[in-house]
Design a protein around this nucleic acid. Sequence first.
RNA 1: CCAGACGGCUGGAUGGCCGCUCGCCCGCGUCGCGAGGCGCGGGCGGGAGGAAAGUCCGGGCUCCACGGAGACACGGUGCCGGGUCACGCCCGGCGGGGGCGACCCCAGGGAAAGUGCCACAGAGAAGAGACCGCCGUAGCGGUGCCGGUCGCGAGGCCGGCGCUCAUGCGCGGCAAGGGUGAAACGGUGCGGUAAGAGCGCACCGCGGCCCCGGCAACGGGGACGGCACGGCAAACCCCACCGGGAGCAAGACCAAAUAGGGGCGGCACGGGGGCUUCGGCCUCCAAGCGCGUUUCCGCGCCGCUGCCCGGGUCGGUCGCGCGAGGCGCCCGGCGACGGGCGUCCCAGAGGAAUGGUCAUCGAGCGGCCCCAGAGCGGCGGGGCCGCGGACAGAACCCGGCUUACAGGCCGUCUGGCGCC
RNA 2: GGGCCUGUAGUUCAGCGGUUAGAACUCGCCGCUCAUAACGGCGUUGUCGCAGGUUCGAAUCCUGCCGGGCCCA
Length: 169
Amino acid sequence: MTVAGAVAGLKIRREFLDVAASGRKFVTPGAVVQVRAWTGGAGASTTEPRCRLGLTASRKVGNAVRRNRSRRRLREAARVVLAEGIAQGWAAGHDIVLIARADTAARGWPLLLDDLRRALGALCRGSSKDKREAGRDPGPRDAERKSAGSSSPGAAATRAARQRGGSDA
RNA sequence: CCAGACGGCUGGAUGGCCGCUCGCCCGCGUCGCGAGGCGCGGGCGGGAGGAAAGUCCGGGCUCCACGGAGACACGGUGCCGGGUCACGCCCGGCGGGGGCGACCCCAGGGAAAGUGCCACAGAGAAGAGACCGCCGUAGCGGUGCCGGUCGCGAGGCCGGCGCUCAUGCGCGGCAAGGGUGAAACGGUGCGGUAAGAGCGCACCGCGGCCCCGGCAACGGGGACGGCACGGCAAACCCCACCGGGAGCAAGACCAAAUAGGGGCGGCACGGGGGCUUCGGCCUCCAAGCGCGUUUCCGCGCCGCUGCCCGGGUCGGUCGCGCGAGGCGCCCGGCGACGGGCGUCCCAGAGGAAUGGUCAUCGAGCGGCCCCAGAGCGGCGGGGCCGCGGACAGAACCCGGCUUACAGGCCGUCUGGCGCC
RNA sequence: GGGCCUGUAGUUCAGCGGUUAGAACUCGCCGCUCAUAACGGCGUUGUCGCAGGUUCGAAUCCUGCCGGGCCCA
């Protein structure tokens, strides 16, 4: 569960609810991201600020295979993005919850990374900025619709595959 | 070659980069007298399924209850024999039904223990019934003749005798035919009869009896009976057999903070009553402190502190991976399966690992075109483009069942067509 | 892991072996009104969740699936 030794896990329901209540939210096609600034908590002995990650996939996402796949992709994407964040110094000191959506499993990998970068950038790095920044960003929707042409949900797999090849080229 | 039936197997491959978890080994750091523990890093090896799913059954395992056995209730199962730890599963057989056939399907005990139901239609629906109908009968009736009487007459009334009169009413016989229904109290044919009827006969069906075959379910045969005994038990029920209850969040062990309980010690400590093993204990009150605005009044606490003990929560460890185990060969058995020998060790996570990403290949699918052939299409060979694996994720384990599933492979058999 | 309930018209429900599956609301049309509502009249609406089976006959009984909801540990 640890990412580069610097990321712990959120375990119990209580912690997820705390993040959802006191944190801020950013919605992307790949995932819903919630972040709460780490205040030290009850255990004040932790001197250095740590980063904690929680993953959730509800039954709306699909069956067990689809839910597990969505969680794994989010975990791997978070591992990549948080490594950048730790290197740049903005990732520490936050509780992060990633909520899988219906398209998480089929979303193109570069697009999923972009989703997380933009969401965490807005919520963590820009935490001192305007509160409206944390709201819903219509940007990714337009970008995807422009590159895919059709937003039909049935064509999600082919769209993702086409974007995968297109982005590599 | 086409169409089909049955059984079994399989459930993409290779590589690059970055990761997760378990086991073993090595190195470093740290704790410990030590065995060793913990942390970090590295190497090697293992790492989802045929259904892991639904949770419909059976078993192991664990705890609880219980003197043995049985009975009642409740639930389940239900042809016979076998397999199995066991089963509602599997195999073989029997009976019934379907298919030209290979083969498939069946909760398939008891209706002569009792209760109940059988709508509508129909005459009648369970010891039933007579609507139409068939037959007989001359009582009424019809009709012929004769006589009497009334009337001018046509004719009426009364009586008698007769009819090869059965059209109507009545009486009697019948249940073959029509018709109703899912089902009508044996079926078909011949004889028989006034018409009919198991009334008689033949065959079939049914029933109990006897004989033969079979472990049995059941099958075959014989003579007899002369039709009585409709259907529904996935209606109540009866019979036989099976079942104690709960479930790994079972259960076992270690054990934090806080509060509370007990023991020992130190310091502090008023009064009344009761008990006393004279160590104390119980109870009431005062004082003190806190709260309700202060007196009155009401409620609460009644010591402070050190050490130790046990229960128990969070948490952790075990249970937790050698098993009614897999594979190969041989033997027995029609088969399910059993026996012997050899060989292998084969996931153990835990908000939950077994992956993420990229590339190449690929069975196959779709579209277009070409070759050969040709009346056309399909099959066959080749080229280009696109798509490119389905259902689905272990959570204590095992044996079944059920359900989901792209595609591929193998074997046996059936029907049809063609050729030799 | 264990257990329970439920699925019928657009909605909420009834129907517990028998003809053509009903009720209320809704909806449509007509009437009333200058017009709307209310009111009155007429009418429409169903794979009884799906598939098998039992029965002469199934929404109802049995079996297996599918969906929804709930409870306990």
